[in-house]
Amino acid sequence: MNLLKVLMFVFVSSLVCQKAYPQQDKFDSELGLFLKEKNYEAIQLGRLITGHLYLTAEVNGTNATFVLDTGAGSTVMEEKKESKFNLTTSLSESKAVGAGGNNLALKETSIKNFCIKNYVLHDYKIHLMNLDHVNNAFKKVGIAEIDGVIGADILISGKAVIDYEKLILYLKK
């Protein structure tokens, strides 16, 4: 009985997480075919006019836009969007340090379902912070607000490979 529940959960989770992505095979390159054999998921990246790479994910069933930042130590989300993604937050003892500033206050939460195509994280702990400095800069050049930044924590846990020529992020399922 427990095995049946687990299988149903995995099946339903995979259905829930696919709505943000059109079905297309991104394993058409030599690299892609090799990584497909190694059980990687191909995620199409976009490129903003600023040169930043971005992707679409789902946070608790709601579409979200994230900038991909290989230099960011961890993934963060915009604190003003906690209600949009149905997040319950608390103040964190940690402070953010980075190019956007130092000693920035953080909130923390646990995301029930964080889906990047079929790469799924359950009960994933994440920090929220004010991303006005990023979103205001994007607005000035006509780019819509982002919901967060994908950082090294997800890239490392997903054993990420980035094909910059084809703008494809591969994450190991």
Rank of each mutant, 00 (worst) to 15 (best):
Tyr164His: 10
Thr109Gln: 00
Cys115Leu: 06
Ala99Met: 12
Glu79Cys: 05
Leu169Arg: 01
Lys80Trp: 09
Phe9Gln: 07
Lys36Leu: 08
Ala137Pro: 00
Gly158Gln: 03
Ile43Lys: 06
Met8Gly: 09
Leu4Gln: 12
Leu87Asn: 00
Gly73Cys: 09
Cys115Thr: 01
Tyr119Ile: 05
Gln18Glu: 11
Lys5Val: 00
Leu15His: 02
Ile49Cys: 10
Lys117Ile: 03
Gln44Val: 05
Ile168Arg: 03
Glu108Gln: 13
Leu55Thr: 05
Val6Leu: 15
Val12Ala: 04
Ala105Pro: 07
Lys95Tyr: 12
Arg47Gly: 09
Gln44Ile: 04
Ser90Trp: 11
Gln18Gly: 13
Gly61Asn: 05
Lys84Gln: 12
Lys173Tyr: 09
Ala42Leu: 04
Gly158Thr: 05
Lys80Tyr: 14
Ile116Asn: 08
Gly142Ser: 05
Glu82Gln: 14
Asn60Gly: 07
Tyr170Ser: 02
Ile126Tyr: 01
Gly98Asn: 07
Leu45Cys: 07
Lys172Met: 10
Gly46Lys: 14
Ala20Ser: 12
Gly101Ala: 10
Asn102Phe: 06
Met8Tyr: 13
Ala57Asp: 03
Glu30Met: 09
Tyr124Gln: 03
Thr56Ile: 07
Leu3Tyr: 14
Tyr119Val: 06
Lys19Thr: 13
Gly98Gln: 05
Leu128Thr: 07
Asn63Pro: 13
Ala99Gly: 08
Gly32Pro: 13
Glu30Ser: 13
Val120Thr: 05
Asp163Thr: 09
Ala57Phe: 03
Phe114Gly: 02
His133Glu: 12
Asn39Lys: 14
Ser110His: 03
Ala42Asn: 04
Lys117Ser: 05
Ala152His: 04
Ile116Glu: 04
Val120Leu: 08
Thr50His: 07
Pro22Gly: 15
Leu3Glu: 15
Lys139Met: 06
Ala96Asn: 02
Gly100Ala: 13
Asn130Asp: 15
Ile156Leu: 10
Ala144Pro: 11
Leu121Asp: 02
Tyr40Lys: 00
Glu82His: 14
Ser92Phe: 12
Thr89Tyr: 01
Asn86Met: 06
Lys19Met: 11
Lys173Phe: 07
Leu106Asp: 02
Phe34Arg: 14
Glu37Met: 15
Asp163Met: 09
Val149Pro: 03
Val10Glu: 15
Val12His: 00
Leu55Lys: 02
Ala96Thr: 02
Ser94His: 13
Tyr170Glu: 00
Val120Ala: 00
Val59Leu: 12
Leu3Gly: 10
Leu35Asp: 00
